[in-house]
Amino acid sequence: MNSDDLIRRCQNGDRESFDTLVRQHYDIIHRIAYKWCGDQHNAQDIAQQACIKLALSIGQFRFDASFKSWLYRLVINCAKDFYKSPNQAHNRHTQALDIEPAVSAKMERNQYARQILEHINHLPSDLKDTLVLVFGGGLNHKQAANELKIKESTVSWRVHEARKLLKQTFESATLPEHTTDAVGGAV
């Protein structure tokens, strides 16, 4: 059966379909979680939370976006929540954009990766769907193209576009404070 049907069956309470759905998507869930936190142990915890959350939220998928993109957001949110609980104290101090130089290299790397992963959520849907497959699914461009039913060159173009957009976002966000108070020199 096609994937939409599978999801619908899940929404109707069909256990076996749900089992199939989770098995099919565990890898992508784990991969996203791993990219978020960079360590296997936490990634597995996050992945488990996400699977549970999937069980609870599957009824609310409205077929108005790609399932994997919806899933992506679900996993990212689980990952964020995971780091907010008190037993993950080492993540308390990290700031989104003003990165303290004293922070260890790994935390810095994680910080950065997370911002990028988070920003994917805000991309227009065609770019987002593509990136979710590449980043989350670990697919190469050809495989992604097959799944999306578009040309491989389109996938490459989209990844390139997304990279541009994301980069722009990062660059505009980290401009240092200027000494003049007003914009454009006028007061």
Binding site: F18, V22, Y26, Q40, Q44, A47, C51, I52, I58
Partner: peptide
């Protein structure tokens, strides 16, 4: 992912679903 972690996650998800 470790097989045990995968299995556990799937199991818990199924239980929740039920």
């Amino acid at each position: 992912p470790q097989e045990s972690a995968r299995a556990k996650a799937i199991a818990k998800a199924n239980v929740t679903f039920d």
